[in-house]
Amino acid sequence: MTEANILRRKKWRMTGVMIVLIVLTYGSAAITKFNIIEGLFAIPSTLAWMINNLVPSAETIENIPKVLKRLWETIILSVIASTTAAVFALLFAILGAQTTQFNRFFGFVARFMASIFRNVPVIAWALVLVISFGHNVVTGYFALFFSTFGFLVRMFIETIDEASSDGVEALMATGATYFQMVCKGVLPDTMPQMLSWIFYMIETNIRSATLVGLLTGTGIGYLFDLYYKKLDYNMLGLITIMIIAVVFIIEFTSNKVRKVIS
């Protein structure tokens, strides 16, 4: 097959994909009776409403200490859930990765469990767990833990399998044990990327913890729900701005750490 024919096939495939996406977009809009044009024209008025109602007032700013207290609870919950989930995810990833698995059955079980935990949304976990544990921090912790565990197992497995196998083969050739191969051949090469995924999940869990807090009555989500029911949009704006600021700070910090360890 000539290069011209290959390029022509790729062009037709891309054209087909674009046509399918356009049909799905307009078909979804027709089914839901959503007018795309009206939605676009509504953006300026929506932005104007947000500026008039969500910008914190001087009186609202006095409540920053109260918001910081709840926000700090959310940050701590997100960090603890992410780090503890990462420890268990690393163990399951070592069992499930092709490079490090010592038994196919255990490898299958590890990947299967990770798939189950990963494909259940964090909100669904919170709804299920709130029945068992009630409206408290424990419910929020386990909801974040389970979803984080499933995601990190998948990412850690891919990271381990994509790492260079030269060091592993060299260690195995010298008669190294399984644990020596993992500790000296796999972890040193994969740890920087794994830490990046952990920082990513901390950022994600801070946002998710806000939604979980709406259901469990804890953290910054509790305050958001409280002022939403009061229709206090100034406080809602302050809470939203502070959440965004914290996420940006953590992202900036994680980027610095990645540069240091890479």
Rank of each mutant, 00 (worst) to 15 (best):
F102W: 10
A110K: 11
T148N: 09
S115C: 06
E59K: 07
L90Q: 02
L187I: 15
R118K: 12
H135Q: 15
L187H: 02
F179E: 11
I61L: 15
I76M: 07
Q101W: 01
T83R: 00
M191K: 13
V182D: 10
I123F: 14
M181C: 13
T177C: 00
M155R: 10
P56F: 01
N103I: 00
L187G: 04
G185E: 07
T159W: 00
I123K: 09
E73A: 10
N52I: 01
I116Q: 08
K69E: 11
G134P: 08
M191L: 15
A163H: 04
F105L: 14
M172S: 13
R104Y: 12
W72Q: 06
V122E: 15
L144P: 05
A89K: 03
T60F: 05
V130F: 07
D189V: 04
R70T: 06
F92N: 07
C183S: 14
R154A: 03
V120H: 09
F105I: 15
T99G: 04
P192Y: 08
V122R: 07
M191C: 02
I94A: 06
V182H: 13
N53K: 14
W72V: 08
S82D: 00
G140V: 02
M181D: 08
V79G: 03
L95T: 01
G96I: 05
A176Q: 08
L90W: 03
